[in-house]
């Protein structure tokens, strides 16, 4: 009788302890560019409700995703994310994320924002992007690792030659330092979009001719094999 009372006391103390520990989840998201020679444009790192997404493989890209994938412009996606009360960090690297460099975004998620998405354009490409789509954020404290693939937005032919980044403009945007790293005078690899839905990027072709050939991409440096990014998520309560 006395003993069972004691147990009850201890139990309620334990429960009280648990209740005190339960509060908002802090998320630290480290993104590392794993590639030899591909640059990531400003990333959008966002936690949102699981019923939302920035992109879906097999579906057409939104206009906002297209602007990101063709020109690295994440402002449209930011506005869309704000409209759904997502938690986000835009452009954590403060510009391009260089090959093998890392950047970290830290935020506290609202209770319902349990899905993590990340996007950023790949340079040099026409409309390639690194993506994470609605990854369920673990609610248990710990460190988790996810590897990301390269996607093709399906909105622009992969001609692999110098051009513009505005939606619909042909060719690749070449901001510094890309303007000095890629070739010039390529005739263009293709004018065709084979799959207008978001899909796994077929990879850069490139060529060995910096002054001509079919592509302005350097074939030995600016190709990649998946995965292209490592994401380390640290969840604390």
């Amino acid at each position: 009788m006395t003993r069972s009372n004691l147990f009850r006391l201890m139990l309620s103390a334990a429960l009280a302890g648990t209740a005190v520990q339960a509060h908002a989840v802090d998320v630290e998201v480290e993104v590392q560019n794993l590639t030899r020679g591909i640059y990531f444009t400003p990333l959008l790192v966002t936690a949102h409700t699981p019923d939302q997404s920035l992109f879906n493989v097999g579906e057409a890209a939104s206009a906002e995703l297209q602007a990101m994938a063709e020109g690295g412009d994440i402002s449209g996606l930011e506005t869309a994310a704000m409209a759904i009360s997502a938690d986000m960090v835009a452009n954590p690297a403060g510009g391009l994320l260089m090959p093998t460099a890392s950047t970290t975004a830290t935020f506290t998620t609202a209770d319902t924002n349990t899905a993590l998405s990340i996007v950023g354009m790949l340079l040099p490409t026409n409309d390639g992007f690194v993506g994470l789509n609605s990854w369920p954020i673990p609610q248990e404290a710990g460190t988790y690792t996810v590897y990301l693939n390269a996607y093709d937005a399906g909105t622009e032919a992969n001609d692999e030659i110098r051009g513009g980044g505005a939606p619909g403009a042909p060719g690749m945007p070449v901001p510094p330092p890309l303007e000095d790293l890629i070739g010039t005078g390529g005739s263009g690899v293709t004018t065709t979009i084979n799959n207008a839905m978001v899909h796994i990027h077929p990879g850069n072709l490139g060529d060995a001719d910096m002054m001509g050939g079919q592509s302005d991409i350097q074939n030995t440096v600016q190709r990649w094999l998946n995965p292209v990014a490592k994401v380390t998520v640290t969840v604390t309560e």
Binding site: T35, R36, T100, A208, N219, Q222, R223, L225
Partner: peptide, 14 residues
Amino acid sequence: VSYHPGVVSSQDTL
């Protein structure tokens, strides 16, 4: 050290 971009080969574009 990075992930490897893959080899090209002479039958591709090198």
